[in-house]
Design a protein around this nucleic acid. Structure first.
Lengths: 129, 129
DNA sequence: ATAACTGCAAATCTTTTGCTTACAG
DNA sequence: CTGTAAGCAAAAGATTTGCAGTTAT
């Protein structure tokens, strides 16, 4: 593991918000001004391949970017508000159960699951006339 | 509704496989050789805005394209095999239930749901050493 | 008529690749 | 040493936009 990779992994793990490749590069450059875009993309591909990070679209609420987060033990999904852009996470045992059920019924060996929802959050729902 | 739009909508509804923008354009050109890429993208944006089609990534199994399908009454998700590229659909009442539960618990007004799974299908699971 | 839609070409944005040099094990 | 990773710059792929002409209502 090289210093750059360590840095990038650390940023993904610690970031309070979901970062896309450009955002990750921007944050990384505060520590290492010479780090290159290509290194960011190559590291993302590597981590994704190892199943260490998950890739999200967040319903493409702001463009066709991909966002990344460190894989956690707790399966969860993301809800994106079309009005205010807020991203909420949601976890429940029903989600885990569905996953198990899908695997059992289809014979599919599940490696990655991505559940994303778009709509209006509680506040925006009220605010929208 | 213009003729081009009618054509594009018809293709999305009838296509047995999921098409991306380029594939949709290709099929459309068999009927109307002059139809342009921009029209395809503009129509997709329109239909998506009206909630008439769903957008899929199919786990980016072949590049960063987006695929489209006409919205159906039956909620379902897609399972993509990393080995053979097969796409399977899966529908169950548990999925519907999860959706209802999410909305109830979070106060979120759900407009679009996207559940995608990546892994290995029954056959490839066996075939893999 | 008026507003919405089209094709065309160019621009934009994100991601990938070839190549040469530099670093890790 | 030997293979893997890095930076750089250029390419590729997907999607969007400005504009001038065309079509639908």
């Amino acid at each position: 593991m090289t210093p750059q990779r360590r840095l990038l992994v650390g940023i993904i793990q610690d970031s309070p918000r979901h970062l896309d490749a450009a955002g990750l590069l921007e944050v990384a450059r505060k520590q290492d001004a010479d780090i290159d875009r290509a290194t960011v993309y190559r590291t993302i591909a590597l981590l994704k391949g190892y199943g260490l990070i998950d890739e999200l679209d967040l319903m493409h609420i702001e463009g066709e970017k991909h966002y990344y987060e460190a894989k956690t033990n707790r399966e969860h999904c993301h809800m994106a508000c079309f009005r205010c852009g807020a991203i909420m996470e949601y976890a429940s045992s029903s989600f885990e159960k569905l996953k198990t059920e899908m695997a059992a019924q289809s014979g599919f060996q599940i490696r990655v699951v991505r559940l994303e929802v778009g709509g209006f959050c509680k506040q925006c729902r009220k605010a929208a006339h």
